[in-house]
C-alpha cells in the first residue's frame, strides 16, 4: 500500500516522535478499541499488548528512544459530528465533497474521477460527465465517487443522514478482506 510505506519513510526521515492523525473510532468496527495515544515500536509496529489504558483525561505519553506515538485527537467524533462542526465553525473543505459535473469512468463497481491526463484509462473506457461528489478522499485514483446532487454543506449532511451505505464503502483499500485486513494494516503502520 502506497500510503503505509510513504508515511513510515516520511516520519523516519525527519525524526518525528509524535504524529497526530485524523482516524476516528466510528469508522470501522476494529477501530472502536484503538487508543487515543497509540504506541509504535522503532519499526512503526503496533503491539496490542503494549498499548496503555487511558483513564479520565490522563494520557501517559512517555516513551523510550526510537519509539513513536500516533495520537488521534478526534477519535470520539462521528462522521455526523465532523460535518456539523464544519458547518458550525465554517471550516473550508475541498470542493470535491460537493456535487458537480465531473468526468468519470465506472470500474469494478466504483466511480472513478478522471482528474487530468495522469489517469490511466483502460482500453475501451470513455470518461462520461456525471454529477458526483466524494464522501472520503483517499489516494487518487483509488477513491470512488458517488452520484449526487448535494452541492451545499446542508445538502451533503442531508444526503449523509438519509443515505444507507457506510462512509468507507468507496475505498478500494478496504475491499481486500473485511475486519482482519484493517487490523493487519494497523499493525503494518497504516494508521
Amino acid at each position: 500500500m502506497w500510503k503505509t510505506e510513504g508515511l513510515k519513510q516520511a516520519l523516519d526521515l525527519q525524526g518525528f516522535d509524535v504524529a497526530f492523525g485524523g482516524a476516528r473510532r466510528d469508522e470501522e468496527k476494529s477501530r472502536a478499541k484503538e487508543r487515543i495515544f497509540s504506541f509504535r515500536t522503532a519499526s512503526h509496529g503496533w503491539d496490542p499488548k503494549r498499548q496503555r489504558p487511558e483513564l479520565w483525561n490522563l494520557y501517559n505519553a512517555r516513551k523510550a528512544k526510537g519509539e513513536s506515538i500516533r495520537v488521534f485527537p478526534i477519535s470520539n467524533w462521528t462522521e455526523l459530528d465532523i460535518w456539523q462542526y464544519i458547518a458550525r465553525e465554517n471550516i473550508p473543505i475541498v470542493p470535491l465533497y460537493f456535487a458537480a459535473p465531473r468526468p468519470t469512468v465506472m470500474r469494478d463497481g466504483l466511480l472513478l474521477m478522471v482528474d487530468d491526463d495522469r489517469f490511466p484509462l483502460n482500453e475501451g473506457e470513455v470518461p462520461a460527465l456525471r454529477s458526483v461528489r466524494f464522501r472520503t478522499l483517499g489516494c487518487y485514483p483509488l477513491t470512488g465517487a458517488v452520484e449526487s446532487e448535494a452541492a451545499t454543506l446542508s445538502e451533503v449532511i442531508q444526503e449523509m443522514l438519509l443515505t444507507t451505505t457506510s462512509e468507507r464503502q468507496g475505498r478500494i483499500i478496504d475491499k481486500d478482506g473485511g475486519d482482519a485486513s484493517m487490523e493487519k494494516k494497523k499493525q503494518e503502520g497504516y494508521f
Partner: peptide, 12 residues
Amino acid sequence: VKPVMLYSVGKD
C-alpha cells in the same frame, strides 16, 4: 520532542 500533524486535506 518533535511532533507533526499528518494532513490529508480530507474533511477530518
